[in-house]
């Protein structure tokens, strides 16, 4: 049911002039994809520094909250570009992406990563005073940072895998894969 709705929406998007134009414009699509990939260096770059500081591995002489605060803005600018270019990439190829197993895993991982980041931010605001200047933060903080790095590495991996057609609908997939990828008759 849900998959049928998602497919209908994707089909509607795919039929718009905007989506067709995006898909057929070789350079536009390639540039959006390139910007999406290169902005990794800003969004995940800043995130990696914050997480490595929380693991006690980067700029340990500087208070952890200071690093997190100073790099918050460039990181969010990076993620804003990621979201805009990511949405455009989806709009350019809506039907196949909707039924992509890797895209679906990526979306779930993104949600989990955001929840982790939100909980982490709250935890830091409440307790940072006690460990802010410690070179190596407490165990709970380190676990959250390691989880964040792992989740984002998996997001990158799934994102890259969307381009491959291993589990595309219509291939000889198992029933489970077809279910997970949301393959329904167009």
């Amino acid at each position: 049911m849900l998959n049928t709705w998602l497919l209908r929406i994707a089909e509607w998007i795919g039929a718009t002039d905007f989506s067709v134009g995006l898909h057929e414009s070789y350079y536009m699509y390639a540039w959006i994809e390139s910007i999406h990939v290169i902005t990794l260096m800003i969004s995940l770059g800043m995130l990696i520094i914050i997480d490595l500081r929380m693991l006690g591995l980067w700029l340990t002489s500087v208070p952890a909250s200071k690093i997190a605060e100073r790099l918050d803005r460039p990181m969010l600018i990076g993620f804003s570009i990621m979201v805009v270019t990511g949405v455009l990439l989806y709009l350019g190829i809506p039907i196949r992406t909707t039924q992509s197993l890797w895209f679906r895993i990526k979306v779930i991982l993104l949600v989990v990563a955001f929840i982790n980041a939100w909980l982490f931010r709250r935890h830091m605001q409440q307790s940072a005073g006690s460990w802010d200047v410690a070179a190596v933060p407490p165990r709970r903080t380190r676990i959250a940072a390691a989880l964040s790095l792992t989740l984002w590495a998996a997001v990158v991996m799934c994102g890259r895998f969307i381009a491959y057609d291993w589990f595309d609908c219509g291939q000889d997939n198992s029933a489970f894969i077809d279910w997970a990828a949301g393959c329904v008759a167009g």
Partner: peptide, 24 residues
């Protein structure tokens, strides 16, 4: 095909780390 794709993904993750080092 998966071998190349996995190496590619690791390449991208390292690109993010390079971005962290260069941009900071």
């Amino acid at each position: 095909a998966a071998t190349f794709a996995i190496i590619e993904a690791v390449h991208l993750i390292a690109l993010a780390l390079l971005g962290a080092a260069v941009l900071s």
